[in-house]
Design a protein around this nucleic acid. Structure first.
Lengths: 333, 333
DNA sequence: TTGTACGCGTTATCAG
DNA sequence: CTGATAACGCGTACAA
């Protein structure tokens, strides 16, 4: 098997306590003794068992993060920011994607048993399980959901941005709109976006459902919509991938964007900038979201329950490109 | 703290052995006893400590995966395929990105201590550490690197695809080429791609270095190259993101693609399809790469050393779109 | 400065 | 069918 601390102790002619002290720098060790120990460690290439350490220390030195879905740029950008900070803070990161999984409960509980705390995207874990985890006092940071007592939450601003976007489009003079998005739950990002745009556009906009937030489903939904009798003049999509699908559908139908049809997205993923026409969208600080979540979680774990009631909202930015219409003056790369 | 098996045993009026047997279904338990135990478990909402289980079982039921970088669609697509399969096989997944980290050795060793095996992208871990891990008999699957004795390897086909691509471009009649890619090491993907294209194009192609594989560095390198006196007629980029950057540079210089300049990428990420002109590229089965890696690793862990010498190469596909030139007949979405 | 012995939470062997 | 008890690998009071 693996070499244990006992073998090291024996070889160095000391007790395991001395080996532990030497390696961790806790407590005093005579210089000469230290040398013997380090020599034995070197010769046996000893590495303390993570399991043993965790069991004794009573902590995992690891965090988890739960996504609805690992496909697409949005979540992976958040993950990037998260992993970077978590790793910097000396914590390993475990991931779990719930997409298409039947045993979500078990998977989440298993994950919970492997970490000192975790970040959870809204709408990925059933509410009763959420309550269970909070009751167990597991440090928790939720992303993109309404505040929960006993856990920190973090999200990007949606409603005000949606308002700005809607007003911008109205400024182009369009008279009919559609909002393209999959079924959304109360308190999630998309419901907030809908609230923002519908507040401005009123009865001029109507919601249209896609099956999911992917290029394919955006394409399919847009195709059907654009072929219908009441084709809207502008399409506000709930995320960039849906918008890219809409662009594809427009192209297939021979509709010019933005002249025949305006299209906007949300998130500002890489492809948004490279699409032609380039996509007008709302930029979300995805990496920052992940990074902040990692820091907040760390505070929750180390600092105790103090930070448990922090609820932050990161600001977003309207990025005007060309898919929403022609702009004589403004232009943003 | 947490509720332990002892409390359950006490409450049920049995020994911890009986609790364990009941919960795991190992060994016989009288029906009546079982009921008592399950009741106690329910009332205390007991969940066995993962640490205790792992220590006793001698396994983590977790795997790791090491990336050079979590940014960009390529690695995250691989991760997606990996996580899906690993999770299905009942293994948690730990991730580690080495990009910009100073203590890679320590991070990798720590990860190694938390898992039953791991997947490692080539060029992320120093060779001596690789040897160390193999010597420790840790099950290992390498991605995109030359075979290593003692570990399985898996990669996408590069050279033949590069040859096909080069021949296709030559068919367009171009006379001068540049290959855009960051410094590459022997045995990595990009060196194989260069080998393939240079074998066909000979002295008509010359390598140009970017600083990394990103849109930004592709843009910068292309800008400089395209402004030089000997502007090539075609740009073979080592990956799609570099190619997207090149497209941006061409646009800025007023060069029409493909009429003034042909551009090709590699990987077929989402943005490749949505760029205008749409990018001709080599499609790599990224998800499949991750999925296969997870399965191979599982075999290594469970099946013993049998599969340790498997070396698979997944096939790739030339995707002809419009950025490489006008095609009277062929066209592929 | 060093060593002993116990605790951490399971699983599994071996008597009964 | 059930119960002690020995691992598993380490950290650390406490004693020396």
């Amino acid at each position: 098997m693996e070499v244990t601390i006992y073998e090291v102790a024996q070889r160095a002619g000391v007790s395991i306590a001395t080996v532990s002290r030497t390696l961790r720098g806790t407590g005093p060790v005579a210089d000469k003794t230290r040398q013997k120990v380090l020599k034995a460690v070197e010769e046996l290439s000893f590495t303390p068992s993570r399991l043993g350490v965790s069991l004794a220390e009573g902590r995992h030195a690891a965090n988890g993060i739960v996504f609805p879905n690992l496909a697409g740029p949005y979540y992976t950008e958040v993950l990037l920011g998260y992993e970077e900070v978590a790793s910097e803070l000396g914590r390993s990161v475990l991931i779990l994607s719930t997409k298409g999984r039947s045993q979500v409960r078990d998977l989440v509980k298993d994950l919970a048993g492997r970490v000192d705390g975790m970040v959870v995207f809204g709408q990925t874990v059933p509410e009763d399980l959420v309550a269970e985890l909070i009751a167990a006092e597991l440090p928790l940071v939720f992303l993109s959901r309404d505040p929960v007592p006993g856990a920190a939450t973090l999200r990007s601003e949606n409603t005000a941005a949606a308002t700005r976007l809607a007003e911008h489009l109205r400024g182009h003079g369009y008279d009919s709109y559609a909002f393209l998005g999959a079924p959304y739950a109360v308190g999630d990002d998309v419901s907030e976006r809908w609230a923002g745009v519908s507040a401005v556009l009123g009865s001029a906009i109507e919601p249209v459902l896609t099956t999911e937030y992917t290029v394919e489903s955006g394409y399919a939904a847009a195709l059907e919509l654009l072929r219908s009798r009441h084709r809207p003049r502008a399409l506000i999509c709930s995320d960039d991938e849906v918008a890219l699908g809409a662009l594809l559908a427009a192209e297939e139908l021979g509709l010019a964007v933005p002249d025949d049809l305006a299209v906007t997205g949300w998130d500002d993923i890489m492809a948004a900038r490279h699409a032609r026409p380039a996509l007008t969208t709302i930029r979300q600080p995805m990496r920052e979201l992940g990074a902040r979540a990692a820091r907040t979680l760390d505070e929750l774990i180390t600092g105790g329950r103090a930070a448990a009631s922090t609820h932050h909202v990161l600001s977003t930015e309207l990025v005007v490109r060309s898919s929403c219409g022609v702009h004589p003056l403004e232009e943003s790369p």
